Simulated assay, not measured.
Amino acid sequence: MDKTNSIHSKISLNQLSVLRTAPDLEKDQYKFLFNELLPYMNQADWFTVGIMASSASSAVNVLREIEKRFKWNQMKISSNTDITGPVYLKANQKTGEIYVRIEYGLGEGILISCQHDDINKDSNTLGPFPLNFFHQEI
């Protein structure tokens, strides 16, 4: 096993935070990271989601999977998604709005920012998670 794969088999949320693109994960790694993520999500009041993807349709589909997984209300797309090229999607659960823009030079993955209504609490941005991370049965 090469060094990259051995790192992936033991990767933590802290290690993800330094990556520009989401790593390929083995099946058992999904469960480990999901279980590490849940306490952060359970303490949050609301979320922002950033998705770096190869297309707008891919990014929107990934967001819809996240909404379904966590039983969030479906957010409204507030920008043109009829664009060609790599994108960055930003979804704000508090406002219910989604914005998508062309963005070159990014990696690929999902960033979840756990937000708080109390401005004295720091938000936590976690990821990048693979685009299929929240689609997995864990």
Rank of each mutant, 00 (worst) to 15 (best):
G109A: 07
T81D: 07
I119W: 09
N42P: 01
N92G: 00
H8Y: 05
K71Q: 13
K31V: 13
I77T: 15
G109P: 06
A91E: 06
S17G: 13
T21G: 15
L126H: 03
S78E: 13
Q43L: 15
T95Q: 00
S12D: 13
R69Y: 14
H135Y: 12
K10D: 09
N92T: 02
N120V: 06
Q115F: 02
T84H: 12
E36V: 00
G107W: 10
S123R: 13
L38F: 04
S9Y: 06
A59I: 13
H135I: 04
K10T: 11
C114G: 03
S78H: 08
I51M: 02
L25Y: 08
L13D: 04
P130L: 11
A53H: 09
V87R: 07
K27F: 10
R101K: 12
D118M: 06
I98M: 01
S58K: 13
I110W: 02
T4N: 05
N42E: 15
L37T: 01
M41P: 12
E26V: 10
I102L: 07
N35H: 08
M1G: 14
S17C: 11
G96P: 07
M1T: 05
F47K: 05
L89T: 02
L111P: 00
C114K: 04
I11L: 15
V62K: 13
M1W: 00
L89I: 02
Y99F: 07
I51F: 02
P86L: 05
L126E: 07
I66Y: 06
T21H: 09
I98W: 01
D24G: 01
N5I: 03
T21D: 10
I51V: 11
K10R: 14
K121S: 11
A59R: 12
F133A: 15
M1R: 01
S58C: 11
L131R: 06
I51H: 05
L63Y: 01
S57W: 03
K10V: 04
A22C: 03
L33R: 05
V62L: 08
T125I: 07
I83W: 11
P39E: 04
D28H: 12
P86W: 04
G96C: 08
L37R: 03
Y99T: 15
L131E: 06
S55L: 07
S123I: 05
N42A: 11
G105D: 05
S58Q: 14
V18P: 02
G96Y: 06
